[in-house]
Design a protein around this nucleic acid. Structure first.
Lengths: 284, 284
DNA sequence: TGCGTGGATCGGGATCACTTATACCCGGAC
DNA sequence: GTCCGGGTATAAGTGATCCCGATCCACGCA
């Protein structure tokens, strides 16, 4: 099996057209057609529908899942070899960052930031070789790893703080010394996925279904504050945060969860990567 | 990049010889040599040492990690396509089982058992397509998944019981109503990895280092009982187990952990696989 | 019916991937 | 030193393959 054919298949599936895939890859349409035909011959079944539209069949979807993995590993293999042979000394360090950690990056130095939504996406970028370092934050139990951590990665904790609930100062619960999340499942929560301590992270770390209110798909902590103050829903935040005007933070007593910021690097990083990881760890 | 070359490289690395790899794969030694040379040319660096012995270089080790993933995904892609096209109707259902769950398999029916050590190894067998179903047991917090569970897998819990500590009846702690694991880190534990509620699973689920005594690398619950009775160390067990002669089981009150048995299948199983999963689930 | 779009197919030159045969390298025996 | 044996690299030849340009074909549309 040749990975060029897999790339053709994947590109056709993405672009929805043999000719567009061909021009994207610098092949002729004929070659792409032959690639796909060859894969279908070895698979023994059609992988794409042609008419009325070009789209994966059910067999094709399964096949593509693995094909994409193979292509990712092919790139990762190249990157890994370049890393150990040190032939990447002059290429910029590529950093995967979650929205809330972007400000930790040093301004100086040759580096390329890869924006990712959460720790799991950062792990994918790291293992596929798209990133050399990841600076991620997320919600987990105190001794649990953040999602997506695995072997072959060196993890370094930059900051860790217990989690609290962000409430308007006038809210009936704002005066409490602490709160149990289980008693708040019927409250309305902002529906966030990319913010610091996003409700989706909170919900999955706590393994609790939370009732969702207004949805916010951005990443800005300021907007979250405005929405909470306006009563559109609750949101979590690191308990050591200075509460924005008009808001209070009440610590979560159960379940015991923390917001953690981590730097992750491959087990065998080049010097420039290590230096960057140290800089972020020290910046804090 | 051609996966045949990757297979040659991997086989050379495994057998430690170009000629042995060649005969194992049905190639000539010359072809294997050219495969490896081609990969080294594209990688731009030697991947294997030739003399005094054939072994991966550091770049080769990194490369091989990804190469093996690619080969696994190639097989998995074939298996996945065969699954959805139903061309595997007459092949036996392949089941990955942990040592403690083997007795749950129905005796009748065409099936092939793949023995694995733990839930994580079963997950690897499942995603690589080596197994259609997995019947696994392991230790985890009550609402946590067992290690190695992921998306694209349908999980069904067969049995779940709290965990207790297996003690000789004469042991000073044997009369207690419950025990805290944190107070037992200095006790001596049997060093097991493949038994039901093995100490390595217990330790990693509880995130506690336990002091290890005698090591037992087998899987027999009977042997574990004999070793505990003889005072070689403590061991965990499902709390609902009928204690063997001369032993008592004291429930663990903290951390709250359970021993769980699960059946896992791919998201789109063929009928024969589903039937088997149901049979195991019903057997209990 | 004729036309435009887009995938499939055909023929042919360049390249590739094997095989066989042979060269090369190194350690050990004499 | 020389020869031998186990083992990898290289050379030459051949059939398969890859990819291109050209053309065919199916379909939707006016």
């Amino acid at each position: 099996m040749d990975t060029r054919a897999l790339l053709s298949l994947a590109t056709v599936a993405e672009t929805g057209s043999f000719s567009r895939a061909a021009s994207a890859l610098g092949f002729t349409q004929s070659a792409v057609s032959q690639h796909v035909a060859g894969l279908e011959r070895t698979a023994g079944t059609p992988l794409l529908t042609r008419r009325p539209t070009v789209a994966p069949t059910s067999a094709g979807r399964e096949f593509l899942r693995h094909a994409r993995q193979i292509l990712a590993h092919e790139q990762a293999a190249r990157a890994a070899v370049a890393r150990v042979t040190g032939r990447d000394q002059d290429t910029p360090v590529s950093v995967a960052v979650t929205p809330a950690t972007e400000h930790l990056l040093p301004v100086a130095g040759r580096l390329a930031a890869v924006m990712v939504d959460d720790a799991a996406a950062a792990a994918a970028a790291l293992t596929s070789g798209r990133a050399d370092v990841a600076v991620v934050d997320g919600v987990a139990a105190p001794r649990d790893p953040l999602p997506g951590s695995g072997p072959d990665l060196v993890v370094r904790v930059v900051a860790e703080a217990p989690i609290g609930v962000l409430l308007p100062v006038g809210h009936p619960l704002a005066g409490r010394p602490g709160l149990d999340l289980a008693s708040l499942t019927d409250a309305r929560w902002l529906d966030t996925a990319r913010t610091t301590c996003s409700t989706s992270e909170l919900s999955s770390a706590a393994r609790l279904g939370l009732r969702l209110g207004a949805a916010y798909s951005g990443t800005s902590a300021g907007t979250v504050a405005v929405l909470v103050r306006a009563g559109h829903g609750l949101h979590a935040a690191p308990a050591d945060l200075v509460p924005p005007d008009g808001l209070a933070i009440v610590p979560l007593t159960a379940p015991r969860l923390v917001h953690r910021t981590e730097v992750r690097v491959h087990a065998s990083p080049r010097a420039a990567v290590l230096a960057l990881a140290d800089a972020v760890g020290a910046a804090r």
